[in-house]
Structures are given as structure tokens and as C-alpha cells.
């Protein structure tokens, strides 16, 4: 395998309670590359990301294929290795509805600091300084660190989830609908922050989004999914300007135009 291709999903199939919901999905990302997964609601996009994190939950199971990180199948790592590689600071995940995944009774700052401490020896001052720098770039008021989750608006919670994921500067960022609750101005600032991270740290990003504008603006490659299966996979220019599959054409045509 190309040594730069450090993350690859090969022929992945996933089943929940014996029922297959993802069939033969393959893609790969190199360092500094951004892949956008787009497609129909319920087509298995979140499932692919969860499988890549080993987070399918009780009913879910990888029924075929492999997920390779640095050339090793993550489902064959020992639990300790897996914790270090995946749950550690190499791979970070932003969940769909990140705002809702915070613990309701502790402040945002405490929760993020706790997860940061597992992987770094940052002092609280250092943590606060790093957080504030990121928060400034994604238009998130600094006061959010001292807030409880229920006091945040939908978009603030989502950006708190983004902060938690990017603060450790992972090598691979898996982001599930990270801008779905954001107005266009804030969307653009988040997208720019992620692209800046890629530029500075050469991180790879797999972003699931239904926002075709975000996919167009950020991604190098695009994977289109429907009904658990890959429909089309290729360079962004190719997918947007010369889509081959009927479904891709429909998906792009359905984007409401805003042309001045």
C-alpha cells in the first residue's frame, strides 16, 4: 500500500441485527486529503464512519471487508492498541448532533479538558489558550467553555463538538454532518478552519455532509452513496461537472440555486 494512504476502507459491509445496511464500500484517503461522503438519508453514511471508529454499538457488526489504518486492519488490533490508535489522538470524530453528545451536568470546558488530559500533559491555562484560539476562528464565544450544554443553541453545541475533536490535532478527522446546524456565515468559518488544519497539519478529513456546497468547497474527492451502496466515487470536479450515475445527477440537480 502507498505509504501516504494511511486510511482505507476496503469492501466494507455492515449489518445491524443481521440486516445488511452497508454493502461493499471502498475508499481511501491520503495525508492532507479531504473526502466528502454525500448521499441519501439512511444510506449508511454515519454507519461507515462509526464502523471506522469501532463504535457500531451492540446490534451492529462489520460483516465483510477491512478498515486499514497505517496498513493495519483496525479490527485485528489488540484492545490496547486500538484504544491508542483510534480512540486516542490519531483519529478524532465529530458526531452527527455533536451538541447532544455532551454530558448534561458538566460544563463544556470541563468535559473537553478531561478528554484532552488523557492524551496530553497540557495545563489548564494551556488548554484554555488553545481552545480560545480555535473558538475565535469558528465564531464561538469564549463563554461557551463555562456553559452547560442545555444553555447552548444548536449551532453552538455543534461547534463545541468540533472544538473537542480538532483541539488535539488528530491525523485523521471523521466528521459527521459538522455544519448541519450552522448558518451560512458560521458554516464558512468552520469549513475554513478545517481546511486550515489540513494546510497546517496535513491532516486527512472524511466529512459526511448533505450540504453539496460544503462538499464542493472543501473536498478533493467525493463518494456518493445510496441505499447502503456506493454509487459513484471520484474527484470533485468530475462528480460535480460530469456526474455519471443517475442518482448523482438528481442529487446535484436538487440543490436549490442561489445565483446572483
Amino acid at each position: 500500500m502507498n505509504k501516504e494512504t494511511f486510511f482505507a476502507v476496503q469492501n466494507l459491509s455492515v449489518a445491524y441485527n443481521g440486516q445488511t445496511v452497508v454493502r461493499s464500500v471502498s475508499f481511501s484517503v491520503r495525508c492532507g486529503e479531504i473526502l466528502a461522503i454525500v448521499g441519501e438519508s439512511g444510506s449508511g453514511k454515519s454507519t461507515v464512519l462509526k464502523a471506522a471508529q469501532g463504535l457500531l454499538g451492540s446490534g451492529g457488526r462489520v460483516s465483510g471487508g477491512r478498515i486499514m489504518l497505517y496498513g493495519r486492519d483496525i479490527y485485528r488490533l489488540s484492545p490496547a492498541e486500538r484504544r491508542r490508535e483510534i480512540a486516542g489522538s490519531t483519529v478524532a470524530m465529530i458526531f452527527q448532533n455533536a451538541g447532544a453528545s455532551f454530558c448534561p451536568i458538566r460544563t463544556i470546558g470541563e468535559q473537553i479538558y478531561e478528554s484532552v488530559r488523557e492524551h496530553t500533559d497540557w495545563s489548564r491555562e494551556e488548554f484554555t489558550a488553545q481552545s480560545k484560539a480555535v473558538m475565535k476562528r469558528i465564531n464561538l464565544p469564549e463563554t461557551v467553555l463555562n456553559e452547560f450544554p442545555f444553555r447552548l443553541s444548536g449551532g453552538m453545541g455543534q461547534r463545541a463538538g468540533i472544538l473537542a475533536a480538532v483541539i488535539l490535532k488528530p491525523a485523521l478527522l471523521l466528521a459527521d454532518e459538522p455544519t448541519s446546524a450552522l448558518d451560512t456565515v458560521t458554516q464558512l468559518s468552520v469549513v475554513k478552519e478545517l481546511m486550515e488544519l489540513r494546510r497546517q497539519q496535513n491532516i486527512a478529513i472524511v466529512i459526511v455532509t448533505h450540504n453539496m456546497g460544503v462538499a464542493w468547497y472543501m473536498a478533493d474527492n467525493i463518494l456518493v452513496m445510496r441505499d447502503g451502496e456506493p454509487v459513484e466515487y471520484g474527484a470533485k470536479e468530475q462528480i460535480f461537472r460530469r456526474p455519471q450515475a443517475q442518482y448523482t445527477k438528481e442529487l446535484i440537480a436538487a440543490v436549490p440555486g442561489l445565483r446572483l
Binding site: 456546497g213 468547497y217 460535480f240 445565483r259
Partner: peptide, 8 residues
């Protein structure tokens, strides 16, 4: 901002 991200 919406326009910046409008696909072709």
C-alpha cells in the same frame, strides 16, 4: 457566504 459555497 452561501454564494461562496455554491457548487458549479
Amino acid at each position: 457566504a452561501a454564494l461562496v459555497m455554491t457548487p458549479p
